[in-house]
């Protein structure tokens, strides 16, 4: 005869067993809660504070003092593509015409046509003219044709104030720093390519060598050391400028003050931080 039979409502043994089980559950839960409580305490511990101060984790650089922005004077661009090559070398971007952190587009309006012809270094005709995929140039297309208007437009990541790429990133690998730069943590990127799709400017590409998304960092390793980005350094005509909006005398602050600047696709609401002179309605 079992206890259950004697007292079917709540026999002593079952009661004790139940209490025992719940004690285990409660204990485990409290361990979990305790670990959770420990997280912020660990972050607040002395070593974390000194390694991750509010001024940012980069030694010798205070990201609260800066707000970076970029400017492009498209009327000065001669389409020499030195910026593309300098960027690829500086940032280990694969040497092929399809993956670029910065690139230049050529817009050509032929006589009597309304739509522009647009080509860039990944155009088969331009690849053929360069002869090798290690070297880039704009081919002498449109020779002998009547051209109404033609110009070059350098492009790069806009480091938007409202970055869509960061919004869609499922892991926290894409993020925005307080100094206005959008970066990718390659150790955290799972290569899902949502961000590549999400960018309205096509500024991101998928790097087959690292299996992560990749894009322009405004040479974060240079600007945090007081240097200019590689593409700005390479440009022989000063078509590109990088500068700090918190410094009223920086190249970009002056450029924005002295010119009527535009941004690409303002209607998207991303609030880009690359400011252009020399766009027209078809450039997007």
């Amino acid at each position: 005869m079992s206890d259950d039979a004697k007292n079917p409502d709540l026999p002593r043994r079952s009661f004790i067993r139940l209490i025992g089980k719940w004690t285990v559950v409660a204990g485990a839960l409290s361990v979990g809660v305790e670990t959770m409580k420990h997280l912020p305490t660990a972050a607040a511990s002395e070593s974390i504070i000194s390694r991750y101060p509010p001024q940012g984790p980069v030694p010798g650089y205070n990201w609260l003092d800066h707000h970076w922005a970029f400017a492009v004077d498209a009327t000065r661009c001669i389409g020499c593509l030195r910026c593309v090559e300098a960027c690829k070398i500086e940032n280990d971007v694969p040497f092929n015409p399809y993956n670029t952190r910065t690139w230049v587009e050529r817009y050509v309006y032929l006589d009597g046509e309304k739509e522009p012809h647009v080509d860039s270094i990944d155009d088969p005709r331009d690849i053929a003219a360069a002869g090798t995929r290690m070297n880039y140039r704009f081919a002498d297309l449109y020779e002998g044709q009547k051209v109404d208007q033609a110009f070059f437009i350098p492009k790069l990541c806009n480091h938007c104030t409202n970055p869509t790429c960061v919004e869609v990133c499922p892991t926290g690998a894409s993020y925005q720093t307080p100094d206005g730069v959008v970066l990718i943590d390659k150790t955290y990127c799972i290569g899902c390519r949502y961000c590549v799709q999400a960018c309205p400017y096509g500024a991101r590409y998928f790097n087959e060598q690292t299996n992560t998304a990749d894009k322009c960092t405004w040479c974060y390793h240079r600007i945090t050391k007081g240097m200019k980005t590689a593409c700005v350094e390479a440009c022989p005509t000063h078509a590109r400028k990088i500068g700090d909006l918190k410094d009223p005398n920086s190249d970009v602050s002056v450029f924005i003050r002295e010119n009527r600047v535009q941004v690409l696709k303002p209607e998207m609401g991303n609030q880009p931080n690359v400011f252009y002179v020399g766009l027209n309605k078809d450039v997007c």
């Binding site: 390694r51 991750y52 940012g56 984790p57 980069v58 030694p59 650089y61 990201w63 300098a86 070398i89 500086e90 926290g172 690998a173 894409s174 993020y175 720093t177 307080p178 970066l183 943590d185 150790t187 955290y188 960092t217 040479c219 974060y220 390793h221 240079r222 945090t224 050391k225 240097m227 590689a230 350094e233 390479a234």
Partner: peptide, 19 residues
């Protein structure tokens, strides 16, 4: 600093400039 690894900006900033 936010929903990302705080060490990541330091790692990116530590790359050596070549140009």
């Amino acid at each position: 600093y936010g929903h990302f690894r705080g060490a990541s900006p330091r790692e990116i900033a530590s790359i050596k400039p070549t140009f």
